[in-house]
Nucleic acid binder design. Structure first.
Length: 943
RNA sequence: GCUCUGGUGGUGGAAUGGUAGACACGAGGGACUUAAAAUCCCUUGCCCGCAAGGGCGUGUGGGUUCAAGUCCCACCCGGAGUACCA
């Protein structure tokens, strides 16, 4: 019987659907295992072959775990809010909900064809009210909590209110926007507005005027991870810095726990490293420098090199620094103002493009170095950033490359205070660069002179702490996440405003549903699209949304007009999958206590500094308020590598526009123009000439210079994209070869984690393998008398395969697993194996990889239940025992010949056998100097 | 610049310090066939040689080891992330 994959695959897909084979229960006495794919955004372009790579890998693992007796949660859903659908809506007027729905349907259709074991009954979509109810709910919890550094967790804001009423800010150690000091009397005397303003300083979701990444083209604010090189990640539009009142999440409060948590999870080093860099923890000191103006004023700087404080020759403030106005001397005022204005108006892109260019201005003011009492000039420069540390630095040009460049540019003094050896002092004026390394000894440095850098750091910190002018501290690069978007297609904030003070909508009233709008663009007055919504006001008394014409600011108030960003809905979705239809809670205690966390998470490394930080933060917060039970949500994480495109080229002669020269005949690449050609009309780099002529009108009369009657195309690895005509659609391959072939081939391409080019050339080989595998069962199924006992050889092959496949799956080495199936199939075919006892376990082994063919053969072998519920075969080592071993024999480490010896031979007998072998005569002269005998591995003779 | 990755045949890749190139693609040769498709068999890292056999080979140069693609040091090249983060 032929391998009719089309018929087999559609039949079993239908069976799985109708019998709910992939339905997972939260009640089970089996051990649990949770396999998750990163939430896809359903784009309009549909899936290309790169997308399913990770899904196939996770599906194999999920099916494998199930065969091993685990209750496996393997859900799928959609990150359905997002910019592309909304941009499309702005252009066409089509409601983003409609576009999104269409894209989801297309995705689902494509996914279904590949035969995944997703439990679709748990599907979630971020844009559905019953889902985003819990996104809004979490936001409200963030709004209602603050981070207590002493308790090292989030606590209710109500506790803070009680504390303020009793003792004011006394003794409070909490994450905040700015450090406030006030007494209980003051707190109790303040009105509601003032109190709310103070509380906002501590809330984990807070509203503040902050410098944001404003993207005019998209009409919205973006988070740091959504901006690369001054351009928006989506669309590539310019981004500028702007001060705006926005919602933010106090992610920075969790910085230390986000760093520490990395120790407990099983991620790749490179991914952990990206997160560590993004969080950017650095230890150092905060030091106060007094200002020379008789005002007793001072300002705080942060440094990681307190040991170099004797080498400070100037101070630098960022252009946004509040002290600038106060300290600038009248003579310098005009120049400083001009510089500050110039710096503030520069776009992020301009600034970043000119990082090497030095700019700055002297304020005319001086500070005092608290350790040397020296007078030090204060400058302003944009190389000091407002968002990091205190926005002010002590400059040590000899030992910081940026300070060095600045000092050279403006002719400021450079003083060496660190040297590799105690006496290796040289004239910094002769240096070509600063000495930034944290090694060597302090020189010219008062009481720390002669100390090693590390000792000097500690000594200086001790000294400034003693003097009461500074302290040891830690700074993080990680900034709070901007949480407002001036867009339509996102979760509305459950917030309304009384006298400009935000108030939460009661939790019982959630979800606050996204209103209909007349237009998706910003309003004429520059408000976000929700400004177009007519029914968008909060009736406090009746607890409902009403028409905004009713706003009286007494009982009916305006609602927030921004919406939440893309990462809002994707930060806790893995928890919702545990209990997706719960209307009473985000998820039940029972559900989270059973599933705990995601055991295996598969997705792209591009989410390292976005989603994977936000989700960890979200989960830690939910942990603090008693929701999630495990602090780290994703125990093991695998990054699937990008699948790159493999483009094909034809070469048009520059001398003759209608002539195309086959690759091997080109003498000089300068004589031809390479042109991308659709990979679908190229087979193994041979161009289909007829289809090429039909492809585009301008090639209708194309002429060719052929080699051996063929036109050979060139190729290159590039991004998979429409414009390069190298996109491969999985549907086409499924139609041609079947889903099982596609699944195997995607795995066969190479290691899951590695980036690799897509090349359809090899798919035939995998398809041939499946046909061969299928044929293996012909005899077994047709011949009743062929059910005899397996041979020793067959059992060895089977148990060896069980061991290899199990090992390979455990270490996510799916490409070698596929190879091993090929090897085994070749061996069994050569042996004409038709023994059920060998072939039946093979069906179970291949089921995670090629579920359709496995299910078909499983039933043909007479089983009534699904192969998904079979038992994973166990390797019995007794069948692997060999009587003899073929030893490679080396002389001086070089392999010379093989010799077959009894498996339990002693070293002495083995060496004697080697000496007696005729091949040895050539290599062995006299007695061996040394013999290395590794049982069952190798014999090496040194002579 | 810094951090992380990777560098093995014509191609994708395999190899836990122990036979480098498994498996597959492509290519070449052959069988079957009137022919084609399908299928099957053989060869296929490079160099010398009719062969037997030998030499050289995992980016480069050193080192450790009986033995190095694998471990250590230095360097070269590609990819990714990040970038005045004090």
């Amino acid at each position: 019987m032929d391998y009719n994959f089309g018929e087999i695959e559609s039949r079993w897909q239908k069976y799985w659907r109708e019998h709910g084979v992939y339905h997972v229960s939260n009640v089970s006495d089996k051990p649990h295992y949770y396999v998750l794919d990163m939430f896809p955004y359903p784009s309009g372009a549909g899936l290309h072959v790169g997308h399913p790579l990770g899904y196939i890998a996770s599906d194999i693992y999920a099916r494998y775990k199930r065969l091993q007796g685990f209750n496996v949660l393997h859900p799928m859903g959609y990150d359905a809010y997002g910019l592309p659908a909304e941009q499309y809506a702005i252009q066409t007027g089509q409601h983003p909900a409609i576009t999104t729905e269409q894209n989801i349907n297309r995705y689902r259709e494509q996914l279904d064809k590949i035969g995944f074991s997703f439990d679709w009954s748990r599907e979630v979509r971020t844009c559905e009210p019953k889902y985003y109810k819990w996104t809004q709910w979490t936001f409200l919890q963030l709004f209602k909590h603050y981070y207590d550094n002493a308790a090292n967790k989030a606590l209710p804001i109500t506790a803070l209110v009680e504390r303020f009423a009793k003792q004011g800010s006394e003794g409070l150690d909490a994450a905040c926007t700015e450090v406030l000091t006030f007494s209980a009397e003051e707190w109790n005397s303040w009105d509601e507005a003032k109190r709310q303003q103070v509380l906002m300083n501590y809330r984990l979701a807070y509203l503040a005027d902050i410098p944001v990444n404003w993207c005019a083209e998209l009409g919205t604010v973006l988070a740091n991870d959504e901006v690369v090189n001054g351009l928006s990640v989506r669309g590539g539009y310019p981004v500028e810095r702007k001060l705006m009142r926005q919602w933010s999440l106090r992610v920075s409060a969790y910085a230390q726990r986000l760093v520490d948590g990395l120790e407990q999870i099983d991620w790749t080093d490179s991914l952990k490293e990206i997160q560590r860099n993004w969080i950017g923890r650095s230890e150092g000191a905060a030091v106060w420098f007094p200002i020379v103006d008789g005002s007793n004023g001072a300002f705080e700087i942060f440094t990681t090199r307190p040991d170099t404080i004797f080498g400070v020759t100037f101070m630098v403030l960022c252009p946004e620094h509040e002290l600038i106005d106060q300290i600038t001397t009248p003579e310098q005022k005009a120049e400083v103002e001009a510089y500050v204005t110039w710096a503030k108006n520069r776009s992020e892109r301009e600034r970043q493009a000119e990082v090497k260019k030095v700019s700055g201005v002297f304020t005319g003011a001086y500070a005092i170095n608290p350790l040397t009492e020296e007078k030090i000039p204060i400058w302003v420069s944009e190389y000091v950033l407002a968002g990091y540390g205190t926005g002010a630095i002590m400059a040590v040009p000899a030992h910081d490359s940026r300070d060095f460049a600045f000092a050279r540019h403006f002719g400021l003094p450079i003083r060496q205070v660190v040297a590799l050896e105690k006496d290796a002092v040289s004239d910094p004026n002769t240096w070509e660069e600063s000495m930034d390394a944290k090694t060597g000894y302090s020189v010219n440095s008062g009481f720390v002179t002669g100390m090693k850098v590390k000792e000097a750091m500690a000594a200086v910190i001790n000294k400034i702490e003693e003097m009461g002018i500074g302290h040891r501290t830690v700074n993080y690069r990680l900034r709070d996440a901007i949480f407002s978007r001036q867009r339509y297609w996102g979760e509305p904030f459950p917030i309304y405003y009384k006298d400009n003070i935000p108030y939460p909508i009661p939790e019982e009233c959630l979800p606050l549903e996204l209103p209909e709008v007349s237009e998706f663009k910003p309003t004429a007055t520059g408000e976000p699209p929700l400004g177009h919504a007519q029914k968008w006001a909060w009736d406090e008394k009746n607890r409902c949304v009403v028409d905004k014409s009713l706003i009286d600011n007494k009982t009916i108030f305006p609602l927030e007009l921004s919406t939440m960003p893309g990462f809002a809905g994707s930060s806790g979705y893995y928890l919702r999958y545990m209990d997706p239809h719960n209307d009473e809670a985000y998820f039940s205690n029972d559900a989270v206590n059973y599933w705990q966390k995601v055991d295996l998470y598969v997705g792209g490394a591009e989410h390292a500094s976005g989603h994977l930080i936000y989700a960890r933060f979200w989960n830690k917060f939910l942990h603090d308020i008693g929701m999630s039970v495990v602090e780290e949500p994703f125990q093991k994480l695998i990054n699937q590598g990008m699948i790159q495109g493999r483009s094909n080229f034809v070469y048009r002669s520059k001398a003759d526009n209608g002539l195309f020269i086959s690759k091997g005949l080109i003498k000089n690449m300068d004589d031809v123009t390479p042109i991308h050609v659709d990979i679908n009309i190229v087979d193994n780099d041979v161009l289909n000439i007829d289809r090429f002529r039909q492809w585009r009108p301008e090639f209708k009369d194309a002429r060719f210079e052929l080699e051996e009657g063929k036109y050979i195309c060139g190729w290159e690895v590039e991004k998979m994209s429409k414009s390069m005509y190298n996109v491969q659609n999985p549907d086409d391959l499924v139609a041609r070869y079947g889903a099982d072939t596609l699944r195997l081939y995607e795995m066969f391409l190479g290691p899951v984690e590695q980036a690799k080019p897509w090349d359809t050339n090899g798919i035939e080989g995998v398809h041939r393998f499946l046909k061969k595998f299928w044929k293996l069962y012909d005899n077994c199924l047709n011949n009743q008398n062929n059910q005899g006992a397996p041979t020793k050889e067959e059992l060895k092959v089977l148990h060896h395969t069980i061991k290899k496949i199990t090992d390979d799956i455990e270490r996510f080495s799916f490409n070698t697993a596929v190879s091993n199936f090929m090897i085994t199939t070749n061996l069994l075919t050569d042996n004409k194996c038709s023994c059920r006892e060998v072939l039946e376990p093979m069906v179970v082994l291949i089921a995670p990889f090629a579920p359709h063919i496995a299910e078909e053969l499983w039933h043909q072998l007479g089983h009534e239940d699904s192969v998904c519920d079979a038992l994973w075969p166990l390797c019995d080592p007794q069948f692997l025992v060999e009587d003899t071993v073929k030893y490679p024999v080396q002389f001086n480490g070089k392999m010379r010949f093989m010799i077959e010896l009894p498996a339990d031979i002693s070293q002495e007998n083995a060496v004697n056998a080697v000496k007696a072998a005729p091949e040895s005569a050539k290599w062995l002269t006299g007695e061996p100097k040394k013999v290395i005998f590794v049982p069952k591995k190798i014999i090496n003779i040194v002579c």
